[in-house]
Write a protein that binds this DNA or RNA. Structure first.
Length: 265
DNA sequence: AAGCACCCCAACCGCTTTGCC
DNA sequence: AGGCAAAGCGGTTGGGGTGCT
């Protein structure tokens, strides 16, 4: 059955439940109701607001689209970094990840992951959960994102900044200072696999060595190659702080990574 | 200009978790 | 403790927009 056709099944017809895209009128009804009665009790919202929607549908519409704090537009470098980091830690716990990205919804993050990150894993002919792909994120993309954020932050503020207090051009994302150290591990003399290395500028410059020790992927990568590639991925060679993923996921770099991965097989 | 392919994301579904009686 | 309803969550779908031929 086509759920977007506004046709309803027999049981739904009896309940007169509406499906498909929301109209402006429905949005207004929902907004008015929530403004008066607040969030929660979504089945009541559906019943009492005059909307012919399920409570579930009302909740989803409000949380993913109508909340005033919802942020729209490109995912910033900081947000990309957080998503990569948090996903490496928690996996597909989208709502948990979303809690650390103010204004972003779990749905949006999930979509981002699927359309951008998983797609690249596919192009690399490796599983998004494979060690190779995780290593690529962990030792290349994440460190480069951090460098990129630092660079853009310094250029806009004129002052050095720590990763935990970076503010984007959009001004809307603050990286939770408590979060990244936690993610980075707790030991100051961390192991090579510890992400602390990634947050240490000096260590970042040494990550190919870490890779050789820790990652199967790294064995074939030289330091210069790796840095050159990661520059390209993040547009570091001239992108000038472009937060678009287009600069990260370009064909040349995908091809290069494919070569590395196949060498490992 | 038309057709096609691809991508993004809003919205759905089914399952799980939580809260209440 | 058990049952039920509501809320929350993650996976999936498909419409619409856009770029390419």
């Amino acid at each position: 059955m086509d759920v977007y056709s506004y046709e309803t099944s027999k049981s739904e017809e009896e309940m007169d439940v509406r499906k498909g895209p929301w109209t402006e009128e429905e949005d207004s009804l929902l907004k008015a109701y929530v403004n008066i009665h607040g969030e929660g009790r979504w089945n009541s919202v559906a019943r009492l607001s005059g909307l012919r929607r399920t409570g579930k549908s009302c909740r989803l519409r409000w949380l993913n689209y109508m909340r005033p704090e919802i942020k729209r537009g490109n995912i910033s470098l900081e947000e990309q970094l957080l998503i990569l980091e948090l996903h490496s830690r928690w996996g597909n716990r989208w709502s948990k990840i979303a809690q650390h990205l103010p204004g972003r919804t779990d749905n949006e993050i999930k979509n981002y992951w699927r359309t951008r990150v998983q797609k690249q894993a596919k192009q690399l002919k490796c599983d998004v959960n494979s060690k190779q792909f995780k290593d690529a994120m962990r030792y290349v993309w994440i460190p480069r994102l951090i460098e990129q954020i630092r660079a853009s932050s310094q250029s806009t503020s004129g002052q050095p900044s720590t990763i935990s207090s970076v503010t984007t051009e959009s001004g809307s994302v603050q990286v939770d200072p408590r979060l990244l150290p936690e993610l980075s591990g707790t030991s100051s003399d961390s192991q090579v696999s510890d992400l602390t290395d990634c947050y240490n500028p000096q260590s970042v410059s040494n990550y190919p060595n870490n890779l050789r020790n820790e990652s199967g992927l790294a064995g074939t990568w030289g330091r210069d190659e790796l840095e050159e590639q990661s520059n390209g991925w993040l547009g570091g060679g001239g992108g000038g702080g472009d937060s678009s993923m287009e600069t990260v996921w370009n064909e040349e770099n995908i091809w290069f990574l494919q070569q590395q991965l196949h060498d490992e097989e």
